[in-house]
């Protein structure tokens, strides 16, 4: 079975965000980029599935040269092939999905893993978009997965519980935390990954459908009041919540 795992290269979640001088995106200087946290679950699930059914795992990323670092991480964990679909311009989810869909079609993957969300633009839509472009089924925010022949049964996390979803291959699965415990890359894996050649080709050419007009920092919040250091402050707290905030 040919398995794709799509990985995005994002600012570390601990990063403080600075807006660049154009006011349309962030200033990347001094920012550490990492594998999107949810994509680690996707990589792990792709590897587990390969270990069970046999096959080949293709780690694919759309973006600039720097994304190779993230691809390399997937290779170190155990992916067989790395592909960079190169575009130095910022793409929206639609344009990313188009590039991914074209490549997945070309390779002929019938199982595709993605993260449920990329922690940069927090879109949570690339999996669904890619699946629809390919005519594949898609199950999102998956925390439990079973594949049996052509049948797929997954549990997805939603408000107040879990939905059990039944579907068929080919399918795109987007991974939520809880799906598995991502493995650490072994030293051997890291060494092997260094030797692997990452295939590089231009991303399928397509226009973005959206356009960012401006990016700005959220209005700073005034730090509030410390009402006290023990339970004697509780009556005042309750009074403020009731009379000033009017929330209880």
């Amino acid at each position: 079975m040919k398995i794709a795992v799509c990985v995005s290269h994002v600012p570390d979640t601990a990063t403080k965000i600075k807006i660049n001088s154009e006011g349309k995106s962030i200033d990347p200087i001094g920012v550490t980029f990492v594998v999107n946290p949810y994509d680690e679950y996707a990589i792990e699930e792709a590897l587990k599935t390969k270990e069970k059914f046999g096959g080949e795992v293709f780690a694919i990323s759309v973006g600039g040269e720097a994304n190779k670092e993230t691809i390399r991480k997937a290779l170190a964990m155990g992916a067989d092939n790395g592909i960079l679909l190169k575009d130095n311009n910022e793409r929206d989810s639609f344009a990313v999905a188009k590039a991914l869909a074209e490549e997945i079609k070309l390779i002929g993957c019938e199982l595709v893993f993605m993260g449920k969300q990329s922690v940069d633009y927090d879109n949570s839509i690339t999996g669904q978009l890619t699946a629809e472009m390919l005519g594949y089924s898609c199950i999102t925010t998956v925390v439990d997965l079973e594949i049996d022949n052509q049948k797929v049964i997954a549990e997805r996390e939603i408000e107040g519980g879990r939905e059990v979803v039944e579907s068929e291959l080919p399918v795109v699965i987007t991974a939520q935390k809880g799906l598995n415990e991502p493995r650490y890359a072994s030293l051997k894996g890291i060494m092997a990954a260094k030797k692997k050649v990452i295939e590089e080709k231009p991303a399928f050419s397509v226009e973005n459908v959206s356009e960012i007009i401006k990016m700005y920092s959220p209005p700073a919040k005034n730090p509030g009041r410390i009402l006290g250091t023990d339970s004697s402050a509780v009556p005042e707290l309750v009074r403020l919540l009731r009379e000033e905030a009017k929330v209880i």
Binding site: G224, S231, P235
Partner: peptide, 27 residues
Amino acid sequence: IFSIADYGIAGDLFEVVPALVTEIKKL
């Protein structure tokens, strides 16, 4: 957390939270 809180109590939660429960129930 106090930098974004509107109201804060800088104390031991094991003492403050039960008092808060009592006060809310009273209300």
